[in-house]
Design a protein around this nucleic acid. Structure first.
Lengths: 129, 129
DNA sequence: CACTTATCTGAACGAACGCACAATCGTCTC
DNA sequence: GAGACGATTGTGCGTTCGTTCAGATAAGTG
């Protein structure tokens, strides 16, 4: 159940007012998948993913992990960006919550790897520029 | 020229220290496209795009424009989201700067349309969930 | 021209964010 | 067990962000 979908339903049921075209009403009414993609859970999930990547530091970290095409530990990543190791740790944690990287314990180290979702997003960005 | 790429160059030239694997050094050295994708301009551009979409209101606006598969004017969009018309205007302006929507004057109205970049990003998000 | 409609712009303000610093935790080595 | 190393967590601080409100602009309408 989504607030926006609710608004959409009311919109479709309302009287036709100035400026709101009948054409739009018809088009939106035909979209039975619109409510699905406007579901609050789906929206929140995508927004978490996008805003996680929408930061310079985190973007660079993901870029490095994707290009390295393999696992890297924090101590390998830190010298490649211009922030403290604490900031890198915070950033990787945010990225993990967003499903953009995966963590693995390996003795004294924590190895990070980019997920398919991260790779797909960067690929699309590269392709549409 | 990118700060991160600079760091990468220094990293590859440095003496091998504890924790930084020779394997990583070899892998990174082979990537001649890494500097390209870490170019400050490219990073800033992608980050602008991602953080523009990484907000609930703006995400919903783009979603509506993509699903409607055509132009919508501001007064058609506003009743579908739960913020003021001013907030919608601000949001659309941000999205236009990020290259996610395109604006067109049509008499009294301004019509907005999602760009291919926006469609591609939402498609990837839908496909990797 | 006054009046309405559609949209934008510019504050202002509270909330959220990104970072560094300090402290802590787990693992390895001597 | 003491100490070093890799990484995380919590806190505080300055900055950015998203929103609303009020006012401006611009185009149609009577």
């Amino acid at each position: 159940m989504s607030e926006t979908a609710d608004r959409l339903r009311r919109y479709l049921e309302d009287e036709l007012e100035e400026c709101r075209s009948e054409d739009l009403r018809r088009r939106l009414a035909e979209l039975d998948d619109l409510e699905a993609v406007l579901d609050d859970g789906v929206v929140a999930d995508d927004v978490r993913t996008l805003s996680a990547l929408g930061d310079g530091t985190r973007y660079r970290l993901v870029r490095l992990l994707v290009e390295a095409s393999g696992e890297l530990c924090v101590c390998e990543i830190t010298p490649l960006v211009e922030v403290s190791d604490s900031a890198v740790s915070h950033a990787l944690s945010t990225l993990a919550e967003a499903g953009l990287v995966e963590k693995r314990k390996d003795g004294r180290w924590r190895k990070y790897r980019a997920t398919d979702r991260a790779k797909a997003l960067l690929t699309v960005l590269d392709g549409s520029r």
